[in-house]
Amino acid sequence: MNGEKPRLRWRLREAGLDGVTLLVLPGVLFVLALFIYPFLYGLGLSFHPAKGDWLANYRRFFSDPFLWRTIPTTLLIAAPVTVLNVVLSVPVALRVRRMRRQRLLTTILVIPITLGTVMVAEGLLTYLGPRGWLNRTLILFGIASGPVHLVHNYWGVMLSLLISGFPFTFLLTLSYVTGIDPSLEQAGAMLGARARQRFRHILLPLLAPGLAITLALAFVQAFTVFPSAILVGDPAGATRVISIAAYQAAYEQFDYSLASAIAMLMAGVQVVIIVALLGARSLLFRGPASSGKG
């Protein structure tokens, strides 16, 4: 029996299991305890409503227009702003890639991400308000005759998602664009392809898998917009997004079961969108975006 012990140890080590491997345990246990467990707990809780059978929460959500309408409302904000951010990011990233001093621009763009949505909301309230600088400028140049209402409505949330979302999609896109070997585009040019053809046939196909991921991440962020929907939006009407409904259920009606159900639905919509985007991605070319072995 004594001879078995070291051999088992060696076998485990060959399989990659030894003392060092055990170091993953704190991290794994932490994520299991504070991420996976709460999620499963919330899932279970959502099937134990205050009154009614186990599906009562979900039935209530889809029968109460005040609740189910939050999904189309959220999609109406998140989908256009995500697409807009990604579509704007691509040409800018392609241009910035050739810049020698990218650092200043990327630093400026990282500021709104760092400040976060609450700060951006307060900035927009001051800057876009009826007496703010933007409205003064618009009136000065005769673009508008009176103050344009850009906050406390749909457009306020759109703009806040544009300001905090564009830098995110841009920096992500830039990192994908810089991963494409520049000599591929040069090779295209040497073969007579115009800028438009090079974009269409070389850059876009190589960028597409990365763009699918960017689109998914950006969409998930926009879909869970929360503080700015309240602060610069119209939280009782046009920008009553799904996270507001979940928040109100938990912190105003103290119905944690319903709140969990809404959170699960939120996660469900995200999963559906991500699976759809990544499914589309798997149809695309996914090899390295550089050529050959060099």
């Binding site: 070997d181 295209g188 550089s290 050529s291």
Partner: peptide, 18 residues
């Protein structure tokens, strides 16, 4: 370069991987 009509072989070949 697209109008010069020259052929070029790049150091890393620059084959379109897709």
């Amino acid at each position: 370069p697209e109008d010069r009509g020259f052929g070029m072989v790049f150091q890393n070949y620059a084959l379109f991987p897709h």
